[in-house]
């Protein structure tokens, strides 16, 4: 990632982002069983997820069709209970759907076993969480190394790549600090370095600014913006409209179904943001 992303220097430049058209998306989600072409990083068709809560079936997702093309910067938005966390868990391969298809990079992952999903998470997905989820007793460097450990990368190369990833988020002078010796913004940047160190297909962020003050939130959103600009596919789950508005495209969920899926300009107009 360090070759395409070089930090704040690229921020502030405006330009047109890759964004798929509604027609293209409809075409790809309405052909069940067909393998999507490689440009589609994520395609879900009729994705359903039901939970059995003591005899009562809770239908968290009731048939979601989403298609996300490479290099898109998409926000998934919705109030609590809308199913956005469930969708994020499915997209992040932490969970499997009750019904429907999920194609990641042209591979059907919705039918995969536990360990295969672990492999996919390791190779294809970089997670950024609201609560950072860094290992408290490990240094920043070791935290960033972790995905490479599970990828079976030899120690020397691991160290080298982890260092580069931390340099890219301007934390080269904090490598040997533990999480409790870092500020919230620094912790989230460590998490971003960790998410990107294995060069994943998608960066999946779950309320990435939820535990940060507004200044730090802005700083993190700038990092995301810059990553998206450099070609990284970014998917961000949030319940805050102004955070969602940083993305190029906003998918709004309500009651387990997609309520709207449009460019951010349309979304802004809809929710009344300037």
């Amino acid at each position: 990632m360090s070759d395409t992303y070089s930090g704040d220097t690229t921020l502030g430049i405006t330009g047109e982002h890759a964004i798929s058209s509604t027609a293209e998306r409809r075409a790809v989600v309405t052909s069940p069983g067909a393998t999507p072409s490689r440009e589609w990083v994520i395609v879900t068709r009729g994705l359903k997820r039901e939970y059995d809560m003591g005899g009562e079936v809770v239908r968290a997702l009731r048939g979601v069709d989403v298609a996300i093309r490479r290099n898109e910067y998409v926000a998934i938005m919705g109030p609590s209970g809308s199913g956005k966390s469930t969708l994020m868990n499915l997209i992040g391969c932490l969970d499997t759907p009750t019904a429907g298809e999920y194609w990641l990079n042209g591979v059907l992952v919705s039918k995969m076993e536990d360990d295969e999903l672990a492999r996919v998470r390791n190779k294809e997905i970089g997670f950024v969480f609201q609560t950072f989820n860094l290992l408290p007793r490990a240094t920043a460097l070791h935290n960033v190394e972790l995905p490479l450990v599970y990828a079976g990368i030899p120690a020397d190369e691991r160290k080298k790549r982890a260092k580069e990833a931390l340099e890219a988020v301007q934390l080269d002078n904090r490598m040997h600090h533990k999480p409790n010796e870092l500020s919230g913004g620094q912790r989230q940047r460590v998490a971003i370095a960790r998410a990107l160190v294995n060069r994943p297909s998608i960066l999946l962020a779950d309320e990435p600014t939820g535990n940060l003050d507004s200044a730090t939130s802005t700083e993190i959103m700038k990092v995301f913006e810059s990553l998206a600009r450099s070609g990284q596919t970014v998917i961000m789950v949030t319940h805050e409209a102004d955070i969602a508005a940083h993305a190029r495209r906003v998918v709004v969920l309500r009651d387990g179904l997609i309520a709207s899926d449009d460019r951010r300009e349309a979304f802004k107009a809809q929710v009344g943001l300037a």
């Binding site: 932490l94 536990d114 672990a118 998470r121 390791n122 997670f127 989820n133 995905p147 599970y150």
Partner: peptide, 16 residues
């Protein structure tokens, strides 16, 4: 537990 969750999210398999 949380550490295990983090490790799994980052790609640790059951055997790891």
């Amino acid at each position: 537990t949380r550490e295990i969750g983090i490790r799994k999210a980052l790609g640790a398999r059951r055997r790891d």
